[in-house]
Simulated scan of single mutants.
Amino acid sequence: MRPVLALVLAVLVPCSAAAACGEPAPHEGRLLIAAGGGSGVYRAYAEGLARVARADGMEARVLATASAADGLRQVARGTADVAFAPADLAALALAGRPPFEGRQRVSALARLYDEYTHLVVPADSGVHALPDLKGRTVATGTPGTGTELVATRLLAAAGIDRDVRVRRLAVRDAAAALRERRVDALFFSGVVPSEAITQLTHAMGVRLVDLGAYVGPLRRFHGDFYQERSIPAAAYRLFAAPRTVGVPSHLAVGSAMPAGRARALTRLLFERKDVLVAARPEALYLNRRGAISTGPLPLHPGAALYYRESKVAG
């Protein structure tokens, strides 16, 4: 083998198996999963991951955290092993920009699925485009969440971030506030369909405002992880499929996690995908080809090793 190539491989492939790395496999320890607050998708996905880990002999526990930002802080400092986070929030963690205090040493095991931004208004609302929110009261999600981040960026892109009254409410509280006309609109970034918004459509007529015109500005100013997506009309009994902003959600770990442990955890994601799908149908979107696209988070070397090995084996 050529000396330069050998050196590169030694750096990129520190070992060929967890045992060869001298690192503990997952079953040799416990797994702490930061799942955000409430009972949303992250929580259900985390419960599925915990079941997978327990079946592999680990002691696994799901931790309720204040937000996705808090989950990223916890994996960076080692008080949690894995966390769920949207790419835009992860980019701020890497850069050490608010809501983070200093750069967070985090990487990813896999890209999981895409989250879709909803801007929900009553069917009889005069809000037909983002600038129409000027002077109105808007629920933008709780602090440190992907919803709050993308909502804040969209309002700024429309030039009205100083011209709305913000209520920092979780999606269920925001849906109740919209139904009672205490807010004029709500933002939510998450899976389609959202249970809270589905229930809202049964309680009152709603519309989803088209946000497609703002994907370009978000990509230019914040990152190309933002993508244009469409919310299927059938998801909420709509007349049309509004364009919106999509952002990937990743499974994050601390960069200091041993390579063997990261490799073994990544292997479990795919070997027990059926358990994850039973917990949350979004796990159907987990596939090896897409999972490696974890930007802006770097792919953990242990996870990269798993993907290289599975590609050779496949």
Rank of each mutant, 00 (worst) to 15 (best):
H300G: 07
A158P: 09
E180I: 07
T142K: 13
A313I: 07
K273T: 11
P217K: 02
D81Q: 13
I33P: 13
L286Y: 00
T65G: 05
G205K: 02
E28H: 11
G205P: 02
L119C: 05
E309Q: 15
L7N: 13
G295V: 15
S67G: 13
V82I: 15
G141H: 01
H250L: 15
S310A: 14
D114M: 03
V209E: 01
P298V: 08
D70W: 10
A176M: 06
L155P: 08
R103P: 09
A20M: 10
D56C: 06
V191E: 08
F239L: 13
V62I: 07
E195Y: 11
S194Y: 08
H128Y: 09
D132G: 01
D70Y: 07
F225A: 04
A85E: 03
P14F: 03
E195H: 10
A53L: 09
Y214M: 02
V4S: 13
T117N: 01
Y226F: 12
P14M: 04
E28I: 08
E180Q: 15
R103Y: 01
T137C: 09
R2M: 06
P143W: 05
A19T: 09
E101V: 12
H128A: 07
A64T: 15
G205D: 03
D224P: 05
A176G: 12
L305F: 05
G38Y: 04
L200S: 11
V8L: 15
A123H: 11
R261T: 14
A278Y: 04
